[in-house]
Design a protein around this nucleic acid. Structure first.
Lengths: 311, 311
DNA sequence: TAAAAGAATGAACAATTGTTCGTTTCAAGT
DNA sequence: ACTTGAAACGAACAATTGTTCATTCTTTTA
């Protein structure tokens, strides 16, 4: 028998195993070699590239990220879109599609406002007849201007939903002002109603100077600094939380006009739309604390979130 | 989740299993799917050609045939050469190589004669100094002529072996003539010595009119007919046997001058060189009866032998 | 709407495959 | 020839994978 017969033997065994479908034991018997050796020969055949296992389809990254996020954080749903030049817009489109589905499924929806979230307004269809659905704003608005990040008007426009708005500032000067607003019957009613939404779409802000509220002058850098000292990493509807999703009680809380923390995290379906490296830390916190039930983001952010949550 | 996600799931699972090297259980845990389902998904992925297992080398037919023959019939060795235009010559060459090895390994070799066997004479090397090895002819020769199928003279020529020949006819007219020969002291001595060979190279004849002995007039068709009636399928050194290798006792036996059947099948290493469809039936008989220890043939004959022995 | 046919699921079991570890075998070096 | 070290081997065990069967969940049909 020639010297090359060890190689040829690997080839034969590979054929018998993968092509003829024999078990290692059957091969062993036929060739009078121990089964253990057959096992080793087959392993060697792979190392020698006699046997090549190829997967004809590319790795479906998006679905994979989605599954892993769902698994790791017990999400009910997660929608990951491919990262691209205009990722925000893609995410907005995905959010719009899911929002439309929600509007046709549920009767009571809550919405927050945020830069990312507002992208979804570009992709809303125009319904001919109004949908039987009520929308509640979950937080007050910006101080001095028409809120450019609000989505609720577009929902009225597109789907003809009935809107219960919260036409007050999100952040006021002090607790007295807040108390005054909170006695206003329409505000009381709106906030009461907001607690009963079946599903809500919200954005998320990071606890750094890049936060939209800082950039728009609603929060000062020193206020953010205070929150960071208390381990705050991000906020949803201006309620800050730490890396494990625990609520952070700062002086800011007494100046907020929005759905309260407890009610927020008790919403049956809290859908978070958020994109970007800056927000990863905050997203991880929200996920760890099981604050949300659905995450809509892009593949890059999703990857970073999974990466960051390993550590 | 889209409808195609079943497909994508197969792809993901395939990647995790074959590329990442995770176990099915690990995948199941990560994806929150039962392990059983992962197993089924992987099987489906093969059916769907998502996973392709390819063997980069062609099937090594020769080695495979050799292994199977060895296994099936308990051969110690089997040498299969590729079938070609001049298969006889290729087999002859292989036989020559093995014979050379044998001459260098053993001190006492037996040889028969046959058309196929004689091909090996074309491929013998020429040794400068004689080998310490004795060669015995195992059967008598042809009647009236120089035996063209004899190999022993070539062995003397090539290796300088010492030859003990059997210079008598293989087939004589009747038992009386045979008895006379068998009393001749040199014949007695040669046959005695022949029984002690360590290894022997022989050919094989089929039990039909195409048998060399019939074609050369040493046997008549009716004699073959008689043997076939007794279920004879072939012969080695003119001893006929049936499909299971059982010796056939015909009137021919009492006219033969060759090593006797018992001694023949007691040779420790009986090497058979035989080629051709016509001989398949006979080869199978010899193999089934465990008459031989080594078979030298070509791939086509080997295939047919394996095929025929299945039935 | 209810019933029936069919597909998907998972627990429990069966079969197959992988690994470890002590033994044997072989070849190189003294 | 003898020792020594590396490689090959296989029995016994461990892990992984495949299959069956009873159940659950879907879908279809009446």
């Amino acid at each position: 028998m020639k010297k090359s017969s060890a190689y040829d033997l690997m080839v034969i065994v590979a054929w018998m195993y993968y092509e003829d479908g024999l078990t290692q034991e059957e091969i062993a018997k036929q060739l009078k070699i121990s089964r253990v050796s057959i096992s080793r020969i087959l392993q060697a055949a792979q190392k020698e590239n006699i046997v090549k296992i190829q997967i004809t389809q590319p790795r479906p990254l998006l679905l994979e990220l989605s599954l892993k996020l769902k698994e790791k954080f017990g999400l009910e749903k997660s929608i990951i879109v491919p990262n691209s030049d205009n990722t925000q817009e893609s995410v907005g489109k995905a959010a719009a599609e899911y929002l439309e589905e929600a509007i046709n499924t549920y009767n009571h929806i809550g919405v927050g406002w945020s830069s990312t979230l507002s992208c979804l307004t570009h992709y809303l269809p125009r319904y001919a007849s109004p949908v039987n659905c009520k929308v509640n704003e979950l937080a007050g608005n910006m101080l001095h201007e028409q809120n450019p990040y609000s989505i609720s008007p577009y929902l009225v426009q597109s789907f003809g939903v009935s809107l219960e708005s919260l036409p007050v500032p999100a952040i006021v000067d002090n607790n007295e002002v807040r108390e005054t607003f909170l006695k206003e019957p329409s505000i009381v009613k709106a906030l009461d109603s907001a607690k009963k939404v079946e599903i809500a779409f919200v954005g998320l802000g990071e606890a750094t100077a890049t936060n939209t509220m800082v950039r728009t002058g609603h929060l000062t850098e020193s206020e953010i600094e205070e929150i960071r000292k208390k381990n705050g990493v991000g906020e949803i509807l201006l309620h800050f939380f730490d890396q494990n999703g625990n609520h952070i009680n700062s002086s800011l809380e007494s100046r907020l006009i929005s759905i309260d923390w407890e009610s927020l995290i008790n919403i049956p379906q809290l859908v978070l739309v958020a994109v970007g490296s800056k927000k990863v830390e905050a997203i991880v916190g929200a996920l760890r604390g099981n604050l949300i039930h659905c995450l809509i983001t892009d593949s890059e952010t999703a990857k970073e979130v999974l990466q960051a949550s390993e550590e």
